[in-house]
């Protein structure tokens, strides 16, 4: 039981990190960034490329090396996110939503198969593996790497939250989310803020990618697809557009999946997850923490 809870929370923290990017972008420009899950995959591959080009890293240094790679990857994936926004989304800012969604699908395709064309379709083995002792805690078996990753995830989420709540940039983001035109009139540089939002969201997804690579050890070019869907589900459960909701939704979805696959069997887990998504959207489309959004005409 405690093991299930722990497993759920651990997987959920990955969902939460990715869901944050979905939620931020959606909150600000009401765009469903379909390519977001693939940024996670690109992050894992960038981490892989950087680490393999460095060569052999002594085991004692692996945590430090990983943190440096994490930062580097976050910057690069952030840049990629900004690039996608600039090329694929910005020209369509005033177009119908359908058009933007389709470019998002196109961007997702380009990233997935672009990586497969560059790195090859085979799964890759991550050069650095987080290894560590496991110990029992209240009947759950917890390993040291899991603790490290959870701490990194929580630190990233908390700093994002205080960034959005405390800084002027964060205030500008919230202002745009509330009313883009009003924010523009009040002197907020909307384009700059949107670029910055994409940067932060993509950087978080990239970080999650590196962490997943280092923990699980295997990466492949389609790894972002399903997790992107799950992260979106998490964002919806928490209330899309709401930062705290995304975190809550991620953890909750992790727990739901852990228990769902226990009850129904592993092969039904994804069916269960998407069933939950549909149930939520039908019964409580605002999610747990979301506010009622009226579409302005």
């Amino acid at each position: 039981m405690t093991q299930l809870i722990w497993n759920g929370l651990f997987v959920g923290s990955f969902y939460a990190l990715i869901a944050l990017g979905y939620s931020m972008v959606y909150g600000i420009i009401k765009l469903l960034n379909f390519a977001h899950g693939d940024i996670y995959m690109v992050g894992a591959f960038i981490g892989f490329a950087v680490l393999s080009s460095v060569g052999v890293i002594p085991a004692s240094m692996s945590i430090t090396a990983l943190l440096i790679v994490l930062l580097l990857t976050m910057i690069i994936t952030g840049g990629i996110g900004v690039g996608i926004e600039y090329l694929a989304y910005r020209p369509l800012r005033n177009s119908p939503r359908l058009a933007v969604l389709i470019t998002a699908v196109g961007a997702s395709f380009t990233l997935e198969y672009g990586v497969s064309a560059i790195a090859g379709p085979n799964p890759k083995v991550f050069p650095v593996r987080l290894e560590g002792e496991s110990f029992d805690f209240l009947g759950a078996r917890i390993s040291a790497p899991q603790i490290v990753l959870m701490v990194i995830a929580v630190v990233l989420m908390l700093s994002l939250n205080s960034y959005i709540q405390r800084t002027s940039m964060g205030r500008a983001m919230r202002a745009i989310a509330l009313d883009p035109k009003g924010a523009l009139l009040m002197g907020v540089n909307v384009n700059k803020i949107i670029t910055w939002t994409f940067f932060i969201g993509s950087a978080l997804a990239g970080a999650a990618g590196v962490m997943a690579g280092a923990y699980y050890g295997k990466i492949d070019f389609l790894m972002g697809f399903i997790i992107g869907l799950k992260a979106f589900t998490a964002a919806v459960i928490g209330g899309i557009g709401n930062i705290k909701g995304a975190m809550l939704g991620g953890l909750l979805l992790g727990l739901l999946e852990a228990f769902g696959s226990q009850w129904l069997g592993g092969q039904w887990r994804d069916v269960f997850t998407f069933g939950v998504l549909i149930a939520f959207l039908t019964l409580k489309p605002t999610g747990l923490l979301g506010e009622r959004v009226t579409e302005r005409v």
Binding site: L92, V105, Y113
Partner: peptide, 19 residues
């Protein structure tokens, strides 16, 4: 697999240039 990259780029380009 390269053909799917082309598909993706074309999809974005068509939407941007000829929505």
């Amino acid at each position: 697999n390269l053909r799917y990259v082309i598909f993706g780029v074309v999809l974005v380009a068509v939407m941007v240039l000829r929505p």
